[in-house]
Amino acid sequence: MSTLTGNALVKPHLGKSLLAVAVVTAAILMIPLVAMQFTREVVWTGSDFVAAGVLLAFAGLVLVAALRRLRTAKSRVIAAGVVGLAFLYCWAELAVGIFTHLGS
C-alpha cells in the first residue's frame, strides 16, 4: 500500500510487495489443503496445487506491477478488474473448460 506524504507518493519497497504476494498465495492455497483434511469432497493432487500456485502468484505479480506503474485511482481499479477477470477466466478454464476442453 502506498502512502501520501505531502506532495510525494511513497511506494512500499518492492521486496515487501513480493513477500505479500507470496504470503497471500500461500494463505489461499491453505484453504483446499485444510479442507482436504475434513472432507472427501476436496481432492487436490500436487499438480493442482502447483497450477493454482502459479496462477495466483502470476496474477499477484501482474497486479503489483500494474499498481506500481499506474498513477490514477481509476486506472488502478481498471487494471485490478482486468487482472481479476483474467484470473477468473483462467481458473474456470482450467477447472471445467468453459470454451475449450483444457479442464476435462
Results as ranks from 00 to 15, higher is better:
Gly46Met: 08
Leu94Gln: 06
Val96Gln: 03
Arg69Gly: 10
Gly53Lys: 05
Asp48Cys: 00
Gly103Ser: 03
Ala35Gln: 13
Val96Ala: 14
Ser17Met: 15
Glu93Arg: 11
Ala27Lys: 12
Val21Pro: 06
Ala59Leu: 00
Leu18Cys: 15
Ala51Val: 12
Val24Gln: 06
Phe49Met: 03
Phe99Thr: 01
Thr100Trp: 07
Thr25Asn: 06
Ser104Lys: 15
Pro32Ala: 04
Ala95Cys: 01
Lys74Met: 02
Leu29Phe: 14
Gly46Leu: 02
Gly81Pro: 09
Leu61Phe: 15
Phe38Thr: 08
Thr25Ser: 12
Leu85Gln: 00
Thr72Leu: 02
Leu4Pro: 00
Val34Met: 14
Leu29Lys: 10
Phe58Asp: 03
Val50Leu: 09
Val83Cys: 04
Arg69His: 12
Ala59Asn: 05
Val42Leu: 05
Leu18Glu: 00
Ser104Met: 13
Ala22Tyr: 06
Ala92Cys: 08
Leu55Gly: 00
Thr100Arg: 04
Gly84Val: 02
Phe38Asn: 07
Lys11Glu: 06
Tyr89Leu: 08
Gly15Leu: 15
Ala80Val: 01
Gly97Glu: 09
Pro32Asp: 11
Ala80Gln: 07
Val34His: 06
Val21Met: 09
Phe99Leu: 12
Ala22Leu: 15
Leu63Gly: 10
Arg69Leu: 09
Ser2Ile: 00
Arg69Tyr: 12
Leu19Pro: 02
